[in-house]
Design a protein around this nucleic acid. Structure first.
Lengths: 338, 338
DNA sequence: ATCCTCCGTGTAATCGATTCCACGGGCTCA
DNA sequence: TGAGCCCGTGGAATCGATTACACGGAGGAT
């Protein structure tokens, strides 16, 4: 592959001049510029990003470590992150932690070794020493969706409290009283926070959240399945199950179907995170929708601010309830017949 | 960030010795090794991958350019690719082309600029000059899922011919005769191939595939929606719609629902690509399943073979039909009551 | 005792870019 | 006319690693 030397030789100038042309430095004569451009063209030359990064100490690359690529929420996030980053002149390298702290650390380490300019993380656990060290050492970093408390890193996330309250009000209005939740790992903020919001909302309606109605999931479909089976085996099973993410909702649906039960007739189901498929499940699933695209874009902007020396800002956007029919009959649409 | 010089200084040896320890070169004395290791530890030193890549001319990184990250098929592919690559000691950088040739070229160019060791592509179109040049110039490359005919690049893909034949037989047995397809872009191999397989299978049953029953989609949900609306507006609409990928099936479902029709009572639906959600749609969707994980792993193995100087092999794996109930009553399960 | 070999180590070249500094020539201004 | 400046350019240092080569000393073979 042609290097800057080849271009310089072909154009009959020094490498310094070639570099100046490539970086549109003002003081290059039109003739020299033309000759260099011709040589670049003739050789099909492209600057070596590796060499450039070594010299300039910047890679114009962002690392994004997410908890699970197979989760549509995170793929949508990844997509919006890449889009915004591209618009700002950065590339993105995605690392999939698969909800495993080891794997998360592996990716963070690899990304750091590559000297990415900044790191976007949705932490799988309460904080690996590696990540804390990196943050302390001054690596530009921003948390998205989930975060680690007590670290001085901006956080971009959705606040689901109000939406959870709306959900509980909706369920209460439909006459449901025994409400269960499948939570995420307590080590994640979204894991504990959603349970807290749920518990608090229940309290407002003078409802309790017994320990048996809390499923301990890990944001994966299988754990949703297992938690739901445990609920169904209870002497008094819940009337509605609220899954703290879409994959556990999928698992819950599997379990419910395996038991020959119908939604919402026998048991209701709601989920945190809305995805296009929820419109077409049987029945359509009531969910709490996050402004995912906005989240991804805001996170990139915060990170790039930090990288380029501007003060980064934490951002919190509201999530909102999308009522469908998986928890019982919604208010009848005008014109529809029962 | 500490460099190899700092380590050398702290350990009281030369950078050469540090490098030897780091690369487990045999001729280093135990004492020197111990001192270096201690220094590495003390400084929290990590080798700069950028510098290393510049010198060794290899990045131990693979590029993966896929057509659409939001498509669950491709995210599953991406995941298996990353897993296998990691097992072989490579990282993966994903580029999302979003079915846009320009964007595809953007990512290929960026990846090439970063001097990735090899490229895995699922081409969005019939072949950009950029990609053809890269292949000709000797960049290790492997096509996954889709490919560009007439280029000497190994292809790893699923053959859906038999499964499509099975699907048509299944539909025929259910009494359906007017079968339509929503195809992908003709510029993609999977776009044209699936139509061909469908047409051929129809011919075996002495059925025609009129032009009006061919929808021209682009593998995105919206095009599935539009094609389906066109089908439904026909004087004699099809009895079954076969979508050439899962997103267009989602769009088709949207359109069908918008018209107040029921599946499969009013119209049947089948899809190429199977995804977990198809089990839970209303009704569960009959689909052709590809061995996605195997495909991703085989593609990485082929690419790494090519990179490391072993002869790479093209691989074709069979897809298979998964019958559910979206095209009409499946054979009754023993014990079920009508 | 001498020579050869091998081992552990350091010096320095190298990868492909960017950028500081110096230099020569033409211009302006006094 | 001469001093000073700006402009275009090239030489060379530099980023952080790897690695060919040289070298001194220890040990074995003759």
């Amino acid at each position: 592959m042609a290097s800057i030397k080849d271009v310089a030789a072909r154009a009959g100038v020094s490498v310094a001049t070639v570099s100046r042309v490539l970086n549109s430095h003002p003081s290059v004569s039109p003739e020299a510029r033309a000759r260099v451009l011709a040589a670049v063209d003739g050789l099909g030359y492209r600057p070596n990003a590796v060499a450039r990064s070594l010299r300039t100490d910047q890679t114009r690359t962002l690392g994004l470590v997410i908890s699970d690529v197979l989760n549509p929420y995170f793929t949508e996030l990844a997509r919006s992150v890449e889009e915004e980053a591209r618009a700002l002149g950065y590339s993105v390298i995605i690392g999939n932690a698969d909800e495993q702290p080891d794997l998360q650390d592996h990716h963070v380490r690899t990304l750091l070794d590559r000297r990415i300019d900044g790191l976007l993380v949705s932490p799988t656990d309460g904080g690996s020493p590696l990540m804390l060290d990196a943050a302390r050492a001054g690596t530009p970093m921003v948390f998205v969706d989930r975060w680690i408390p007590g670290v001085d890193v901006p956080v971009v996330r959705a606040d689901g409290r109000a939406a959870v309250r709306d959900l509980v009000a909706h369920l209460h209005a439909l006459g449901h009283r025994r409400l269960a939740i499948i939570a995420g790992p307590a080590a994640t903020t979204t894991g504990s926070e959603r349970v807290e919001a749920f518990r608090e909302a229940l309290r407002e309606h003078r409802l309790a959240l017994p320990e048996a109605y809390i499923g301990h999931g890990d944001f994966q479909a299988d754990s949703g399945r297992r938690s739901t089976e445990r609920f169904l085996a209870l002497p008094e099973p819940p009337e509605v199950v609220f899954a703290a993410d879409n994959l556990m909702a999928l698992g819950a649906l599997d379990a419910i179907r395996a038991h020959g039960l119908r939604v919402p007739h026998d048991i209701g189901l709601a989920a945190f995170d809305d995805i296009p498929w929820f419109v077409h499940t049987d029945p359509p699933i009531t969910a709490i929708a996050q402004p995912t695209g906005e989240l991804g874009r805001a996170a990139v902007r915060a990170l790039v601010d930090r990288i380029e020396g501007r003060p980064p800002q934490s951002v919190t956007l509201p999530a909102r309830l999308v009522v469908r029919s998986s928890c019982g009959e919604a208010a009848p649409t005008p014109g529809s017949t029962p």
